[in-house]
Design a protein around this nucleic acid. Sequence first.
RNA 1: GGAGUUGUGGUGUAGGGGUUAACACGCCGGCCUGUCAAGCCGGAGAUCGCGAGUUCAAAUCUCGUCAACUCCGCCA
Length: 608
Amino acid sequence: MQVVPQGDWKRTHNCGELREGNVGAKVCLMGWVNRYRDHGGVIFIDLRDRYGLTQIVFDPSDYPDIFDIGDSLRNEYVIAIKGNVRNRPEGMANPKLPTGMIEVLVGEVKVLNVCKSLPIAVNEEGDEDERVRLRYRFLDLRRERMQKNLIFRSKMNKVVRDYFSGKDFLEIETPVLTKSTPEGARDFLVPSRLSKGSFYALPQSPQLFKQILMACCYDKYFQVVKAYRDEDLRADRQPEHTQIDLEMSFPDEEDIFSLIEELMKKMFKEGLDIDIEPPFRRMTYEEAMLKYGCDKPDLRYDLEVTDVTEVVRGSDFKVFEKVIASGGRIRGIRVPGGAAMTRKKIDDLITYSQKLGSTGLAWMKVNEEGLQSNIVKFFNKEKQQGFIREFGAQPGDLLTFVAGRAADICPILAAVRLEIARRMEMKPLEEFAFAWVTDFPLFEWDPTEKRWAPMHHIFSMPRDRDMKHLVDPDSDDYDPAKVYGRLYDLVLNGVELGSGSIRIHNTGLQQKVFDVIGIDEETAQERFGFLLEAFQYGAPPHGGIALGLDRLLAIMCGESSIREVIPFPKTSTGTCLMTGAPSTVDKAALREVGVKVNIPQEKQVDET
RNA sequence: GGAGUUGUGGUGUAGGGGUUAACACGCCGGCCUGUCAAGCCGGAGAUCGCGAGUUCAAAUCUCGUCAACUCCGCCA
């Protein structure tokens, strides 16, 4: 096949553009052969670019000299054609295509490039193993699904930038080569050639820089920015992900909430033409844990956890009494219509809960006469009435119970709750269920390390009313467990979309927080002295949030993995199947940065 | 670090001790002047992820290993 230069040919239209109004026009199109239909006498080709498909026709009765070229075209060849737009014959229009009323009769053709036989089809959505798609990502990205997702992503980026710019926010870039930031994750390290033995870290977020920008008077900052964390991957976690990062001076929580709610409203309206209705639901961390068992509840499903410890207390059911005696709780979920579940289905649910670590899952069916199950006999009439009252049970419901320490049963109840929604094929209350979860504890006790650990990041402002539990370690009120922060998470459909807080802007208070988690002044100076120093020169009160753009886009695109909205993602072992990254480097390159590889021989990657 | 699922022509699947390793799509060739998932005929293409073991015999059974995915740990 003869490949020829493009020469002075210019596209007059793209492949999604021509309509009946263009009939009679002489046009030049360029694109990929999406599919060819050779009828021996006449050849149809769907020419594709990212704007659409246009049917072009090779007809030997009109242009016999180029027919052989048309005959030799194959999928994904890149061609340029010149020809006349004409109406399709009566009854031959294709209503599935926007360009389906017309076709272009090819008068001249240039083959700009050929294509090898394809490992995966571009012109249809394959269901191949993801490793094949990632290996041939350059083909996968040509497909409609990925095009749609990436174009959507670009559009949303513009909405975000327009939105913040329109509100006087400044997009200010922060370094990628920086100092280790104090998030909890492992840093990616980059060796320094000029300072051998020293390393940059890739930022886990621009956290410290954006706080310093507040101290610098840039009172409204935002950035669409990559963040890097060297931790294990998941469907919703990549080693590099993109955040919509922002920070404001002099805000309170409501300022942040309404700012983000309006952004979400705009993105959903412009991206999906869906109206979402702020304000979003708000609940405290404690409420979320109690009612849903987790801090990122999926509120699409109308299922709540009910604590029935006080109803149970004093019953004849030894299993529950034992748990209560040791300080545990009895909590359960009412399953509307669940009484119709077969014994087998209930057993499956029990097995599921046990796999999660529960000791069991008790249950009772609710019918017109009352409660029915093998354990009802342990509860007197009054307690049975108590269950019906507390759960708000209706005949036809199933009541489930899990017993244990609150910290142990919360995650089980959270998972069982979602499993019930799935198995009962519950109809979502709404397609997109947003919520703000607020007032997280600032610290949690780490039993293995025997010390207080920060539950979120360490620059979050404690609530005013909790200061007394923090400021004076010698006072009777001192108790880090009772200190809650001005923290907030944005949750959508059970996914943590973002996290933020009102920050500490006062070095004295900041050191009090460091004291709790065992960071002395010297360590604090060494790790983020620059921030503390900046705060001594007139730092304003400030706060902000960072949203996970990949997660948001995945939900909006209806994808179950963020890899579907990232052009070149990594596999679960952090490798890129297309480029082969990460890879070994020359010894000379290592020497130059003063790094020596020291790993067990058998683990060394073969360089061939 | 742990658990689970998966791995068979280019792609997706079937086959579960002895088969000529089957089917669909794709690919190549031929026929065909109105298709649009075109149609019809023919053909090529697989040492069944890799390595050991059991067996007269392994794609098939066992063990190990690698890879992908999902989850736990981890990631505020």
